[in-house]
Each structure stands twice: as C-alpha cells, then as structure tokens.
Design a protein around this nucleic acid. Structure first.
Length: 1064
RNA sequence: GGGCCUGUAGCUCAGCCGGUUAGAGCACUGUGCUGAUAACGCAGGGGUCAGUGGUUCGAGUCCACUCAGGCCCA
C-alpha cells in the first residue's frame, strides 16, 4: 500500500456532528442559492400539483402542533417537485374574526360592544389589523427554520381589499342562487361578545362538569284542586319566557298523591327517582291524555293575546332525566322554537342583547340572566311552586374565546342555505381521499349528513362586511347584495378608489333606495371561517384578475390540517366549493391527530407542559423533530411528544446515517477514489456496472426495493410507509453492509466505494422530502461538489427511479435468512460462553422450510465468517446427531379437521417421534386414529423438527434452530489465541496513534505455548497488524522488549503474554 | 345522551386473511464485539394484549357489552 498525498475529493466530515449548526449552514446555502424559489421556477411548465395552505392566524406564537402540521404539509410538495411537478406553495394568513378582536379588547381594557363603539370602530379595527401581524416575524422564522417550504413572500392575507372583494363576489353568487337568507333561529349566543356563534365555533367550547342549577317546578293545573305538572329545568332564567309544557305523546305518565296531599303529574319511569318517598300512584296515563291541559303561567310580565300555557306534544321529550315534562320557552331553545311555531305559541323575549333581563321583567330587570338563577328559584319557592332544587353537572357550551357561558337565543341573522346542498356535500365527499380513512364516513361524513344552515353573520367589527344594503324606509324589505367595488361605485355614484373594505368605511357608503329610503349596509360581518374556506377563489382575487392562475389552482391535490378542522376549514372549503362549483375543493387530505404531552395529557398553557418548538430546533434540530413526527405513530393518531423522544431519533437514526456517511468520506478520500474518474456524471452513473461482489449486489437490491416501497408509499400519502423503511434500511446499511465490507473499504476497493456512494446519494434523495437538511448536506458533499452538471441541491434533483434489474428478491430473502441464523448462532455461542474470536468447528442449522436451507447454502461463506465457524451443516432427521419431533401445523390441520385438531395434536405427541418423522420425510402420509376416527396427515401438514443432541450449544426461535459445536481442538484454540493477540496489537497501534497504514515491529514475550501458536499463525498475525517483524522475546534466554515501548499484558489460556509495538 | 378514534412490556410503537412460543426500539442489568459509529451483537428481568361475555378446533386479531383516554356532536 503506497500513500501519496492527494487533495481529498470530498470535504472531510467530522464523526460527531452538531445538527442545529449543520442545519443553519444548509439554510444559509438555500438562501444564497435561492433554492426554494428555484424549486418552483425550474419546474414551471411541468404538470401542476396543487397544495393549499390552511392559513394560521399570526396573532399568537406558533406552537409545536404547528410544527407537526407544517412538517406534514411539507412532504408532498417537495416529493412532487422532485418528480418534476410545478408546485406553487402560496402561504396565507387568516386575519379576521373574534380571536383577533378579543385579543385587542383585552389589550385596550375594553369589555363588550358598547365600550368598543365608544372607543371607536375605526381605531379598533386599525388595532386589529396591526395585531394580526404581530407575531408574523416569529412565524416566518420558525417556518424557515423547520424548512417548511411555503411561499410567504406572496402569501394571501384575508383582510386585503382584493381578498374581501372576492368574498363579496362569492356572496353575491350565493345571493343570486337564493342561498343567502335572513332568518330567525335559536342560536348559541355569547352575551359578552354580543354575537351568535356558528356551529363549528360552538363545538370548540363545550365543557364537561359544568355545574348548573337543577330545579323541579310545579305548574298549577287550572280547574284541578291542588294539582300540578312537574317540570324540570337547568336554566331557571328561561322560566319567565315559558309558554307551554311538552310531553311525549306515547310515554307513560302517572298522577300521584304526595304524602302532604299534593297531586302531581310526571313520567311514570321517573317518579321513583324524582319524588320523595311515600307517594301514591292514583292514575296511569299516556302523554297524549295530558295534551291541551292548561296551567297557570308562572309569570305575566308581557301581555299575551293568543292561547298559551298548556301541554303540547314534543318528540324530543325523553325519560332519561328530568320529569318527562319539558318547559318550553321558544326564545331560548331550538326545540322550543319549533314547538312554538307548530302550536302558534307566543315568543316571549325577556332578555336583551347583553344577556340581561329587560325592564319588563321587573324583579330582575338589568340582571345578567345566569346571575338571576338563584333569585328566580327563591322567588318560586316563596310562592310554593318549587318542588325541589339542587345542582347538577353536565356538559354546557361556553364561548370558545371569552369563556362566557353561552345562551340560546332567538336571533335574526344571515345564513347560507347549506342544507339545500346537503346531498351534494355528501356525494362530493365520496371523491375525497381521506387519511385516516374513517374520517370520511365517520366524523366528516356524519357532520355533512346532519348539515344545518351555516350561520354567516356576526354582529362584530373586524371582519369581512356582509355586502348587503337595505332600505331604511319604514317597513321596507328592499335589499341588494353588492358583488364588487365597481358595482358599489355605480350605486354610490362616485369613485371609491381608496375605500378600505371594512367597517366603518363601507358603512358610510349609502345611496337612495327605489322606495325612497336610504340604502344602508346591514351591520353584520362574515364568519371568519367563510374567509378561509373561500381561499381557493379569494387568494387570486378571482374573478377580477388572475383567471389563468385560478384555473390552474382551482382544486387542491393535497391539504393537511389537524382533526379539529373537520368542522372548520375542511368543512368550509368543502361547503364553499360545493355551493359555487359543485366539486370538491381538495382531492387528498391528511387529518392529523393532536399532540399530547409526554404523559398523554393535553398540552395547555395552564398546565405548563407546552413544548416550545424553538427548544426542539436548538437542541435537536428540525430534521430530528420532523422525523419523529413522521415515524412516531400513524398520522391520524394523537401522539405523545417530548424532547427525549426526539433525542432518541437523533441517536438511533440520524447518527447512524451520519456515521456511515462520515465513514464513506474518510475512506474515499484516503484511497483517492473519485466517482467522476470512473464515469461521466455522478447523477447518472450506474453503481452496479462494475461490481461482482455479492454484498454490493445485495445492498443495491435492498436500495432499489426501498426506492420502490418509499415511492409507492409517497404516491399513496402513506407517511409511515415512506419513512420507517428508510430507517430500517439505514440500520441495515450501517450494521450489516458496511460492517461486513470494512476490509474492502480499507483497501480502497472502487466497487465498494462506488456502491456505497450510490446508496448514500439515493438515500439522501429519498430523505429530501422528510429530513431536508441532512439530505442536502450529504448531497452537497457527495454530488454537488464533484459534478458541475448536477443540480445545486438535492431538492432540485430528480426523485430516484427504481432499477428493476438490480432487484434480486431471492438475494434479499437469502440475506434475511443469514441474519436470522447468525443472530441465533451468536446466541448459541453466548449460551456456551464462547466468544466470537474463538473459531468453532461446526454450526448446525435447522430451518423451517427447505428453500431456506438453500438460502443458507448460497451464502454459506457469509455465515461461516460471521459466526467464525469452519463448517455449516443442516439438522437432518436421518442423522443420529439429532433428536427429532413432529409439529402439526394448526392452520392446515385445523382447517382440514376442525375440532379434530387438538386430538390429533395430542395423539401425535404420544407417538414415536423418530418413526413419525421418518414417514413424513419419506414423503408418506400417516394415519392417526383417535376415538375411532381416522385422520390422514400428509407430510405438508407437519414440520419435522430436529435438534442436535449433545456437544452443541443451541439457540432457538420461531421454529428455527442453530447449534454450534462446543468441542475445541488444539488448532482451533490456537487460532483463537492468534485472533486475540491481533486484537491487542491493534489496540496498541490505536493507543500509539499510528496511522492506519503504518508498518510496525511487534514484540511478543510469552511462554513457549504461545510461541507454538505463532509458529502456526504468525503470518496471519503479521498480515493483520501490518507487522514487518514479529519478534518473539524469550525471557528465559535473557531477552526483553525494548524498555521505552508501551506494553500490554494479556492472558491467553492461563499464560501471561506481554506485547509491544514500535513504528518501523 | 349519541358518534368516531385509541387502549399490547416502565416508555414509544409493530402485530397481515383468526393459526407455531405476542414482537421491535428505548430504558435497566449482565456480557461480548469494535482501526467508522455518541454505536453494534447476545442474554436477562419486565405482558391478565383495558375488562367481561360470545363465535370458533383455535381470539391480541371477529362480535356484543363495560371501563378508561382523546376528539367531535347534542
């Protein structure tokens, strides 16, 4: 081996790597080379792949759950780019809505709408606009740092005039289709925010374990002495609005006499649990018997003209709780409202917009309704109308932002008539590919099937103003919906160039109505979910401009958000697209589970168990964090998260890859190997062209299988399938291919170097979508530095294509068998305390199938080397070296004989195993008779198992058995000593900091027994240790090792040995 | 109250069409190997496969119910 100083072809790689540092370096490279923009620009003209970014709101800091979502969003655009697609990835910001307003209110110390209006809507909205971008810098930084490639420079912003104008256009389309309407409905209403909540907002705020009053109220029946209908409610404040009582027509009711003589009606099934003991049932009756029964109203705060205060039927009445008699206040409940409508009952609105009783409700006028609950209860008690009162825990909705308890109110507001297209919503959902699949028919499908109209209006300030103008002439119903600024200009009769399309500015635009009144905008703004759900249209300011862009980007190939978006963005996108275009907005969607804290509890600021994403980036790096997200659990599952778990990813996966890479670079540079010397171009070179080595073939076969599997998984949006196999491969590459091939790398074998180079380059490409940093780090050094024609970044390169000709399934199977057997062989050695350095005479293997034996025969040398044995044999019932047993396969015999199987098994175990085995091995069937029933057992129904008898150490697993001989000949023992000696010499070399190629003189001072070893194995020792001389020092003859040399002592078979080395 | 999902070793997760002795990684203990590896190999302890009942020759796997957690709806 000659050594000439040459320029290393690859940049030297440190064995220990600081990932965050490495990632920062790569980030700088991407910036310098403008790689992200180029990854789009260079694909222009390619087929389109469309990704929609679900816009976050930047009025808070990004959390680790945003990293999760963004990591998953990033994969497929990168993958498709590498496959030649043009993937425009426009970012977006969601800027309107209550969350923003609440934040600003808090900051300004305002509370409620009156105070906002006093403060001034103009200034309030200005502050809102500012606040939406407050943390945008932090979002941009984290987005870049984690390498989520989304174009934030051109991001759409929902408050921009262009965006709002598109929303107006959409609303105008709905208006023209008569899908926008104003209706009375009972809605969940937040008295603090002064606005109704949409059903998807409502769903954000349910709280279990809410304590509310539970009161049983007696309604005095007219014309019946001392007789009452017993009703139950958890909202005493709704009682002043009571107009009826509902019963289930078919339910069973009873009339009972209490101990004190009071007569009560209630459901039969609930009497026992509701009433005090000692009552007497006077009468059994059905609900329908009670219909029309009038009672004395509890209160008379409002004059009522029509008939009311009587028993009506309600199909919602149950006997699950309460009394089976339900108090009806149409102003405060959806069911109540419907019953009221059906029976022409009055609607008594006792409460104002702030949730306080109106002046007419004298005792409690101005009191917040929930606060009045105890007073109302007390007042009823004072009149003897309270049967009993307590509290109960149930689930009750609260405002998702301000946490006020919601009230159900009859409110007039604007709706989108989504229920009209319900069937279409359901049908179009069929075309969407959901991950996980169960969301499609389950959570999302159910939601669509139960679709109710979308409450669009919000009585708020910072949002897209509803473009509806109404005449203020008395009793006028005249309205217009405006679909563009131009149209508004025409109406207003003036240019509106600089008009900000927000309150209060648009509110100031008026014109004369045909009926003589003044056209004024309705005060409401749109639900902010309408903004984001309309982004496919509005992000392009369609139809006012960008028609071509819109055509290209009209339907997303892929979107990804967490599961809470089923009722949020997933729904609103789908609804808007269905209403407008009658097609799904997206084709593939990954729906992520939530991130939980390490202990499985919810992450929340209040618990203080929130993981700061920057800590992950700084401690472990983006690649590790991303890789953990992808590989930890299926995307739809909720996943536990912690720094420790990410750290495991670093140690297990990234370090293994890095070390293999560093190993390659070290030896490639050492041997002056240069891929470009051999072939014209790195990126096109064919690794298998010039290798005949079985391990090279194997690793290339595995590599191509990997490419095939990962590609298939990517195409199927299967993130686990696209990542976990890479980790397995890297493990195999490092701990099998490289380990077994080390010698070839030391020798600078070009075939080995070429193979490993090819593998590393391909792996870097497979990793590019998932761990973009380490992927590019490898690619830069292994490809870009050498090949002027190569793409400048792995992210600009083409996704690897499977080379079918390199796939050798048989070889892969064979190797798996070798790994299985060598693993068991090591276990066998361990059992007998035989270290691997000690050569053994024989290993005996029992496989389950004959083909597996052939596998081992083909790769026999590998088994022998790996196990350090001289001979490989197979256990065979014919030899008397082994014990045999016959194992009846449950699958085959169970299917054949069903119930008979256990009996057969029992019977066969009683028979002479050797004799049975002999029959089966001769290919004969055997008849087994149990309980006078004859069962024919064919050779393929059983497995003949054999185990070596004695003189072997055995390891067994899953039907496989490996046995190594434990008897050692003198020759084997001596060879073992020689190996031991070599290891110590190598250690000395290492300690003396000798270069790998340095020649040495080795001194061995020991008894004659060891000299005998050297007589046989001296050449071997010399070769292994690059010893020019092997000096045998005989102390008996007065010889000594030169004193200045560092020595090592070891013991070989009870003999003291001292060795030393010196550089030649 | 209803729907969807989850429940397998201390932790994170595999486990196919029901079929041989339920696996991997981490952690722990012991041991071996090492001229790439912050690694690696081997062994050990650690499991009522959440529970109960059912179907079946056979259930972690299928069915029913229950419990716990998560999410959603009312």
């Amino acid at each position: 081996m000659t050594q000439t100083k040459v320029e290393p072809k690859f940049q030297a790689v440190k064995a220990a790597v600081n990932y965050p540092e490495m990632e920062e370096k790569i980030l700088q490279l991407w910036r310098d080379q403008d790689v992200f923009q180029r990854s789009m620009r260079e694909r222009e003209g390619g087929p389109h792949y469309v990704f929609y970014e679900g816009p976050p709101t930047a009025n808070g800091r990004p959390g680790i759950h945003h990293v999760l979502a963004r990591a998953f969003k990033d994969i497929f655009p990168r993958y498709k780019t590498m496959n030649g697609y043009f993937v425009q990835r426009r970012g977006g910001w969601d800027t309107h809505g209550l969350p923003v307003e609440i934040e600003v209110e808090k900051r300004l110390g305002l509370s409620g709408k009156q105070q906002i209006e006093a403060f001034g809507v103009e200034e309030f909205n200005r502050r809102c606009r500012e606040s939406t971008m407050e943390y945008i810098g932090e979002w941009e930084k984290l987005t870049e740092r984690m390498a989520f490639w989304v174009d934030l420079k051109t991001a759409y912003v929902t408050f921009h005039n262009e965006y709002v104008e598109s929303l107006w256009w959409i609303m105008r389309q709905l208006w023209d289709k008569n899908l926008l309407f104003q209706g009375y409905k009972v809605v969940p209403y937040c008295p603090r925010c002064g606005t109704p909540l949409s059903s998807h907002e409502l769903s954000l705020g349910y709280k279990e374990g809410t304590v509310d009053p539970s009161v049983y109220v007696k309604f005095k029946v007219l014309d019946q002495e001392n007789t009452y209908l017993l009703a139950w409610t958890t909202t005493p404040w709704t009682l002043p609005g009571n107009v009826a009582l509902a019963v289930g027509e078919k339910l069973a009711y009873v009339k009972v006499r209490e101990a004190d003589g009071t007569l009560l009606y209630l459901a039969a099934a609930l009497a026992e649990q509701v009433l005090k003991p000692g009552f007497e049932v006077l009468e059994q009756l059905k609900g329908r018997d009670l219909l029309g029964m009038h009672y004395e109203p509890l209160y008379r705060f409002y004059p009522v003209e029509q008939d009311y205060a009587y028993v009506v039927a309600g199909d919602f009445v149950s006997t699950d709780d309460g009394t089976g008699i339900v108090h009806i206040a149409p102003a405060f409940g959806q069911d109540d409202m419907e019953v009221g409508r059906k029976n022409n009952l009055p609607l008594i609105m006792t409460v104002d917009a702030a949730g306080r009783f109106k002046a007419e409700v004298q005792p409690w006028a101005g009191v917040f309704v929930k606060t009045a609950d105890p007073d109302i209860t007390a007042e009823l008690k004072s009149r003897g109308l309270l049967y009993k009162a307590g509290t109960m825990e149930h689930t009750y909705p609260f405002c998702w932002r301000c946490d006020s308890p919601l009230l159900y109110y009859a409110k007039e507001t604007w709706y989108i008539r989504t229920s009209q297209v319900r069937d279409q919503l359901v049908a179009l959902n069929e075309q969407i590919n959901w991950y996980p699949e169960h969301i499609k028919e389950g959570r999302f499908g159910n939601w669509l099937e139960n679709n109710v109209d979308w409450a669009l209006g919000r009585d708020r300030y910072w949002g897209t103003p509803l473009p509806i103008w109404k005449s203020d002439a008395p009793d006028s119903k005249y309205m217009e919906c405006i679909g563009s600024v131009a149209e508004l200009e025409a109406k207003a009769g003036r240019k509106l160039d600089n008009l900000d399309l927000h309150r209060p500015y648009v509110d100031n635009v008026t014109w004369t109505a045909p009926d003589g009144g003044t056209m004024r905008r309705v005060t409401e703004v749109a639900d902010c979910w309408f903004d984001s759900g309309s982004m496919p249209v509005a992000q392009w300011h369609y139809p006012f401009e960008n028609q071509a862009k819109w055509e290209e980007q009209a339907q997303a190939d892929y979107i990804c958000e967490a599961i809470d978006q089923t009722r949020g963005w997933f729904y609103t996108l789908h609804a808007v697209s269905t209403l407008l275009f009658d097609r799904p907005a997206y084709k593939n969607v990954i729906c992520l589970g939530h991130i939980l804290a390490e202990d499985g509890s919810k992450m929340s600021k209040s618990k203080g168990n929130v993981v700061n994403p920057w800590d992950m980036m700084n401690d472990y790096g983006a690649d590790a964090t991303r890789w953990y997200m992808y590989t930890a659990s299926p995307p739809g599952n909720s996943r536990r998260f912690s720094g420790n778990l990410v750290g495991e990813t670093v140690r297990k996966f990234l370090n293994t890859l890095w070390n293999t890479y560093s190993f390659f670079v070290t030896y490639a540079n050492l041997s002056d190997w240069n891929v470009t010397n051999e072939n014209s171009s790195v990126s096109t070179q064919h690794a298998s062209d010039a290798t005949s080595h079985m391990l090279d073939h194997w690793v290339l076969s595995e590599l191509n299988l990997l490419v095939r599997n990962v590609t298939a998984a990517m195409e199927a949006y299967d993130v686990l399938g696209a990542t976990r196999p890479i980790a397995e491969f890297v493990d195999n590459l490092s701990n099998w291919y490289v380990r077994l091939s080390r010698r070839r790398f030391w020798d600078g074998d070009p075939a080995a170097l070429r193979t490993l180079h090819k593998v590393l380059v391909t792996v870097s490409q497979l990793l590019a979508p998932t761990t973009p940093f380490i992927a590019d780090e490898l690619y830069q050094n292994l490809v870009v530095n050498l090949d002027g024609h190569a793409p400048n970044s792995v992210h600009l390169s083409r996704w690897p294509v499977v080379d079918q000709s390199l796939i050798d399934e048989q070889l892969s199977t064979d190797m798996q068998m070798v790994q299985k057997v060598t693993s068991l062989g090591h276990a066998g050695r361990q059992n007998a305390n035989l270290k691997v350095r000690q050569p053994l005479a024989q290993v005996v293997v029992r496989t389950r199938q004959r083909e597996e034996r052939a596998s081992l025969e083909r790769l026999q040398q590998l088994v022998l080397d790996e196990l350090n044995v001289k001979r490989l044999d197979f256990a065979d019932a014919a030899t008397d070296l082994v014990d045999v047993s016959v194992f009846p396969y449950p699958k085959q015999l169970g299917q054949k004989y069903g119930k008979g199987y256990p009996k057969i098994r029992q019977a066969m175990s009683q028979m002479d195993q050797a004799e049975l085995a002999a029959h089966f091995q001769a290919g004969e069937s055997v008849e087994v008779t149990v309980d006078e029933q004859v069962y024919v057992i064919a050779p393929e129904d059983v497995e003949v198992r054999s185990a070596p008898r004695s003189g072997y150490s055995v390891a067994e697993d899953g039907g496989y058995l490996v046995a190594v001989t434990t008897d050692l000949s003198t020759g084997l023992v001596q060879e073992g000593y020689a190996r031991e000696l070599v290891r110590y010499v190598q250690q000395l070399r290492k300690d003396a900091n000798l270069a790998i190629s340095d020649r040495i003189v080795t001194y061995v001072e020991a008894s004659s027994m060891i000299h005998d070893v050297l007589a046989h194995f001296g050449d071997y020792v010399r070769e292994e240790t690059l010893s020019v001389d092997l000096v045998q020092v005989h102390p008996a003859q007065g010889q000594t090792i030169p004193a200045h040399l560092p020595k090592a002592n070891l013991e070989l078979g009870g003999n003291e040995v001292t060795i030393a080395v010196s550089k030649k």
